[in-house]
Amino acid sequence: MAKVIHIRDVPDSVHAALTQAAQSQGISLTRYVQRELKQVAEREHLVRHNVEVIRRTQEQVSGSIDRETILKELHDGRTE
């Protein structure tokens, strides 16, 4: 079931910017904010996944790993 979120004390400038962005895309402010929040949640999920990939990679190599190894594992993990 969908949940309701109330946000208090949103600065006028932020509200105006969000409203303008929603209008420019031809959608309501509510729909725009819902979409943005979904993207934030998905990004957080991806960050947690990346942390897990890094942890597994460190266990596999048993020591320090270079940047290229981490980036390769992250890329491979995203395609799984």
Rank of each mutant, 00 (worst) to 15 (best):
M1R: 13
M1N: 12
A2S: 15
K3L: 05
K3Q: 09
K3T: 06
V4W: 14
V4Q: 15
I5W: 03
H6L: 11
I7V: 05
I7C: 02
I7K: 02
R8T: 02
R8E: 06
R8P: 00
R8L: 02
P11R: 04
D12H: 04
D12V: 03
S13H: 14
S13M: 14
V14W: 04
H15Y: 14
A16C: 03
A16M: 03
A17C: 03
T19E: 05
T19Y: 07
T19F: 05
Q20S: 09
A22V: 01
A22T: 01
A22S: 01
Q23W: 05
Q23A: 12
Q23C: 04
Q23I: 05
Q23S: 11
S24D: 08
Q25L: 03
G26I: 01
G26C: 00
G26L: 01
G26F: 02
I27Y: 02
S28G: 00
S28N: 01
L29Q: 01
R31C: 04
R31D: 10
V33S: 03
V33K: 01
Q34D: 11
R35G: 09
R35N: 11
E36M: 12
L37R: 05
L37P: 02
L37K: 04
L37Q: 04
L37M: 07
K38I: 10
Q39I: 08
Q39E: 12
Q39D: 12
V40R: 12
V40L: 14
A41F: 05
A41K: 08
A41R: 07
A41W: 04
A41G: 07
A41N: 07
E42I: 05
R43Q: 11
R43F: 09
H45D: 13
L46S: 09
L46N: 10
V47M: 04
V47G: 02
R48P: 03
R48C: 05
R48W: 10
H49C: 08
H49V: 07
N50E: 07
V51T: 10
E52F: 06
E52T: 05
E52R: 09
V53M: 10
I54Y: 08
I54V: 05
R55N: 02
R55F: 02
R55W: 00
R56Q: 14
R56S: 09
T57P: 01
T57Y: 06
Q58C: 12
Q58D: 09
Q58A: 15
E59Y: 06
Q60M: 09
Q60L: 09
Q60C: 07
V61T: 14
V61D: 15
S62K: 15
S62P: 07
S62Q: 15
G63D: 01
G63K: 05
S64K: 14
I65S: 04
D66H: 14
R67L: 15
R67C: 13
R67G: 11
E68D: 15
E68W: 10
E68C: 08
I70M: 03
I70P: 00
L71W: 03
K72N: 09
E73Y: 07
E73V: 06
L74K: 00
H75P: 08
H75Q: 11
H75C: 11
D76E: 13
D76G: 06
R78M: 12
R78S: 11
R78C: 06
T79F: 11
T79A: 13
T79H: 14
E80S: 10
E80T: 10
